[in-house]
Design a protein around this nucleic acid. Structure first.
Lengths: 339, 339
DNA sequence: TAAAATTGAACAATCGATTGTGTAAATAGG
DNA sequence: CCTATTTACACAATCGATTGTTCAATTTTA
């Protein structure tokens, strides 16, 4: 028989006092409310004895705070996002917050729905890796004074806090690295996207090429988290463009698929094709030869994200100014150069 | 200015009717409650117009249902778990449920805490990859009629639904595969754990060896999700045991670390050492040479887990019997054999 | 046409907390 | 000794829903 959960009234009744008093005691307002030390002790003792836990739903309903943070990533099964999610989760729990997460798959409509669900649930704060087209929804959140921190990309038209990396320079730098090694026909394989990070990566890539009078070879794929929809277009691209001698993958997901294709086609790295990818991963480190990658500081990103959000959740900090933090990546150079 | 959210009373007032009526209409009980079609229409129209959304906290408080499922995995940044989490998440959303997830890191105390938090939040159902020592907590959940589905491992002493794979046979089979290729000194590198899946893997491994009159070489590591605490013990193990000619990694996490060590030490696969790992991953597929892996049917696992849980959440199905589903793995054989 | 049945909707309790206001008893002040 | 404070709590409203019960108005029945 499911023993009914105790409520604050049960505690109050058992001690013949008012639930008001119990509430004050449990919320550490005993001193302020001049409740005798003796009574405080009796209450705490009983609470511990019977294992009473306040109903957080009721609490949230009354206070308007849920102690939940909504986390929206592109795809939780992507190692880049899942490792950040884990770090954020840890810090959140440490600070008494729980995480509700979900994957947007870069789908605008789904994301709008999800933001709606989070609002329903009265989450206290939002951490979002935003897809395109949700400017209005985010603005609405801000209008209602709900803390929002974006990461990985940002919405140029919305004044929010965000944590990103210097994508433009990172791409520029990686491209220069390849150029420095003597590669001339360097392709960028990326997703078609107006998201800031993708745009910046493409920009940095193009700038480096322009500086060296090389011409860009840009291949944009339709976003899809399912590898099977990426393998085919990548294959036909690599088959067609035999002229390219180096390739930059725009994300770790593209990179992993790209490597599979390269292996399938029997292309050898780096003699046939040099490879650099955005986002580091075990796959690159363990690949033979190991793959040079633009490594994002996931730990730092996660820490900055959650620190920023917690500071905005802290009522003490009334007018925290908008933070835009740009972190630096590291080009993890691996393998030997071609020439 | 944060426009206050509308409540059901606001809707009722604007139409000069009672909130009771609004509630009935919104819950599709208009017919049953004999509310005129005309009024129903007016209410729905206004609700849509002003974008009213019921407060789900209040609803949960009243009904006792939260429409939230608690998902506890070992480590959300582990691709095995994150890919399952994603699939579960998708199916849950489709069915009107949201997911709160967290990572247990196989820590008993943390897990107990987390279960407590989930209970606080009145989650409707629990999906757990259980660490050791939480038998009592899970029993308590069951006693209170809360649906629980375990996966990846189970608790032999607790009668719950669970979804696992045939770990014993999978390990047996993988070991036989190595033996069939002529390897004699086959090590199993695994975590020290009483969890069912780890026990079964070790058992299957030992049975295969015994059958062939070979002796087991078992190395048990202390569980740790941080690679740096695994690299060192694996390194010294491989340095010491030059005699082993094949190794089975007990999890993908160990496998990834193991491969790093193997690369560092300059051991070549499979001439110096043949490798098979539990849990498939991109790392194994892309490694040179590709690594044979025991591939778990993540999609099937996720589907069975969520289907089982949803059926228990469905009040129609009063006495659903306990399900214990054992799925089959596939040995993805890769690379060439040694001899 | 009066009583019975049905229709259409409202009242008020409830879920389990928080919190502004109130008040009896104890203590202090003059 | 009588009044003013202070101490130590309790009452009751509130958060935003759901739901068992009630009830007036209308329609049907006899």
């Amino acid at each position: 028989m499911p023993q009914k959960r105790l409520s604050i009234v049960d505690i109050a009744n058992q001690l013949n006092i008012s639930k008001t008093t119990v509430s004050f005691i449990l919320n550490g307002r005993a001193q302020e409310k001049r409740i005798s030390a003796e009574l405080v002790e009796r209450v705490l003792k009983l609470v511990k004895e019977v294992g009473y836990k306040p109903n957080s739903l009721a609490k949230s309903l009354r206070t308007g705070k849920s102690n939940i943070i909504g986390l929206m990533v592109e795809d939780i099964s992507n190692p880049f996002f899942s490792s950040i999610a884990r770090l954020i989760e840890d810090r959140a729990y440490e600070n008494g917050y729980k995480i509700i997460y979900c994957s947007t798959y870069n789908n605008t409509e789904k994301t709008k729905d999800l933001i709606g669900m989070f609002r329903d649930r009265h989450v206290d704060g939002y951490i979002i890796a935003p897809p395109e087209g949700i400017e209005d929804d985010v603005s609405d959140l801000l209008k209602d004074n709900l803390p929002v921190v974006l990461f990985d990309r940002y919405l140029p038209l919305v004044d929010t806090d965000y944590i990103i990396v210097n994508n433009l320079f990172s791409a520029y730098n990686a491209t220069q690295h390849l150029i420095g090694q003597g590669y001339k026909n360097i392709a960028l394989l990326t997703f078609f996207s107006n998201q800031s990070q993708m745009q910046d990566r493409a920009k940095g890539y193009k700038m480096a090429l322009k500086e060296n009078n090389l011409k860009p070879i840009l291949k944009e794929l339709t976003f899809n988290q399912n590898p099977k929809y990426l393998v085919e277009p990548i294959t036909s691209f690599l088959r067609k463009r035999k002229d390219i001698d180096a390739i930059i993958f725009g994300t770790n997901h593209i990179g992993t698929c790209g490597l599979k294709v390269i292996n399938n086609l029997g292309i050898s790295i780096p003699s046939d094709l040099a490879v650099v990818s955005f986002d580091d991963s075990d796959v690159y480190e363990l690949h033979s030869p190991p793959i040079t990658a633009i490594s994002q500081p996931t730990e730092e990103i996660a820490n900055n994200v959650i620190t920023t959000l917690l500071s905005k959740l802290n009522p003490a900090a009334e007018n925290v100014k908008t933070h835009a933090i740009t972190l630096h990546t590291e080009l993890a150079i691996r393998g030997s150069s071609k020439k």
